[in-house]
Amino acid sequence: MAEIRIKDVAKQFGAFTALHSIDMTVRDQEFLVLLGASGCGKTTLLRIVAGLETASQGEVWIGERRVDRLPPRDRGISMVFQNYAVFPHLTAYENIAFGLRMAKLPQAEVERRVTRTAELMHIEQLLKRYSGQLSGGQRQRVAVARAIAMEPDVILMDEPLSNLDALLRLEMRAELKGVLAESKTTTIYVTHDQVEAMSLADRIAIMNAGRIVQADRPVEVYRNPAARFVGSFIGNPPMNFLAAERVDRGRWRVAGQVLPGPNATQDRIEFAIRPEDMAVGEGGIPANVRVVEPLGPHTLVTADVGGQLFRAVLDSDIAVAPGDTVSLVPQPERIRWFDPETSRALQ
């Protein structure tokens, strides 16, 4: 059992606040992805859990132990680093065995665990090599094997795939998911790649400017962004936003069309729709088509609605050309509304 509880953790670097009071629980055996742009504090948070950084305030609990005053070696964690951190003076075998030897396990057990994790990561053939004789992908496999061989309660991963080329990243991503699910550890995984986050995570925590904006299942984060930032950060192309003006109770005017919406008291709120949640039809949002990009399975249309950039992913057999005006009808159940003041979602 290793649930991670982060209570009111904050971090200042001089006058700069990297983390504002973070509260989060990662359930036992959960795969949590910390997602955010660079500089949002996700790596800092991970390093605080690892014990490589000390929090300015707050508590970190792993299982039933408070660990925020313990050194990394006493926390029951393993970590995989962005640049692999495979020890160059040791063979792959000795790298994987390093932590096991530090823990003074008997030789037979070291042997067993190294062999097993090497098999798991498909590096049995490479065990005698030094890091200089391995490719980037192979080094990362050694680094992951080294972390798993410790059989830790918690594995922490800091952008482990970002130094690999695109194809290798895809392959490793699928493998990591399988290996980590099998190892039954709790995982915190830091990345700035939203596709990686969506495909790996049980739950995604999206961070922005030192705060967790939303933490939820991938589909939930995609469908029901809790804040405007999440909608604009997740999804490629991102969510469309348009100004909405209050007509009367629960009815809003968006680009000339009156749509049913939340019972908010504000005069102006924001209407939001994902590009794929629209179809061409009668009585929709009038859009001036600027660019048409046929992508095969569908066509990406970039248009202009009242001076605002507006994208729609349409069926690929629809005939539109730059200069046309199309009427885009949003699926009513997929429309989301945001408060422009707080930028939080409105119900």
């Binding site: 690892a50 014990g51 490589l52 050194p71 990394p72 070696r73 964690i77 393993s78 970590m79 680093f81 640049n83 951190a85 020890f87 160059p88 390093f98 932590g99 530090m102 823990a103 680094a143 080294r146 410790m150």
Partner: peptide
């Protein structure tokens, strides 16, 4: 690289 040392710390050093 500092990461080598940090990796060693997380591995029980």
């Amino acid at each position: 690289p500092v990461e080598l040392e940090e990796a060693a710390w997380t591995l029980g050093c």
